[in-house]
Design a protein around this nucleic acid. Structure first.
Length: 189
DNA sequence: TTCGGGATCGTCT
DNA sequence: GACGATCCCGAAC
């Protein structure tokens, strides 16, 4: 069952927690790929110094898409090389988002393998840049509706895991917000 | 108009 | 463990 708009109308911390263990699906021309979300990070908007939308920075530029309703993709280029895939959450005017940091591939493994070009299986999607390569996500998906179309998240019947919170990665610039427990990882029992 | 730096990854030592 | 690739946005001049 596909997660609907209402799911994405919650704050980024709750959404980030809730997305762990769910299934990310992308229907590509070559075939459908999917994977269990195993790691996320919450970016809490204007008050969060780690967030791109801190103090409403980029409101009319890069982060404009985050001001829409929840459930739209925010994709940006990092270090001029890789892409990072986020899902905008919360209601219109509240620019929060969830960064998808890693996945465990489930289907479309042949497609992913081709895209990842010889990399070991366990390295296919174990980072935000890597999963974008594996799933064919790039800037053209910025603003894409996650509630319809070809890129979306499905609920799963998965049980037997817990969600662990820890500090976010590579945001040392964020001062006092650097150590907030806004990173969520899946742990099998 | 320029300038600085980044929510990364793969390769090299 | 360290570094280079390489582009876009935002801030400052």
């Amino acid at each position: 069952m596909r997660l609907n708009r209402e799911f994405y109308r919650q704050n980024a911390v709750d959404a980030a927690k809730g997305l762990v263990g769910k299934l990310l699906v992308h229907k590509l021309p070559e075939g459908t790929v999917s994977g269990i979300i195993t790691e996320t990070e919450a970016y809490m908007g204007p008050d969060d110094a780690a967030a791109h939308s801190y103090r409403h920075k980029g409101r009319n530029g890069r982060t404009a898409v985050l001001y829409q309703d929840g459930g739209y993709a925010y994709v940006f280029l990092i270090y001029g090389v890789y892409h990072c895939f986020n899902i905008g959450v919360n209601r219109p005017g509240t620019p929060e988002c969830v960064l998808i940091r890693s996945l465990e591939p489930v289907s479309g493994l042949d497609v992913i393998n081709r895209r990842r070009n010889g990399v070991a299986v366990e390295r296919w999607c174990d980072g935000p840049g890597k999963l974008c390569l594996a799933f064919g996500i790039d800037k053209s998906h910025n603003g894409a509706d996650i509630c319809g179309g070809t890129l979306y998240v499905e609920d799963t019947a998965m049980t037997g895991f817990s969600v662990e919170a820890s500090r976010r990665i590579n945001i040392d610039y964020a001062g006092q917000h650097r150590d907030l427990p806004y990173r969520f990882t899946l742990c099998y029992h």
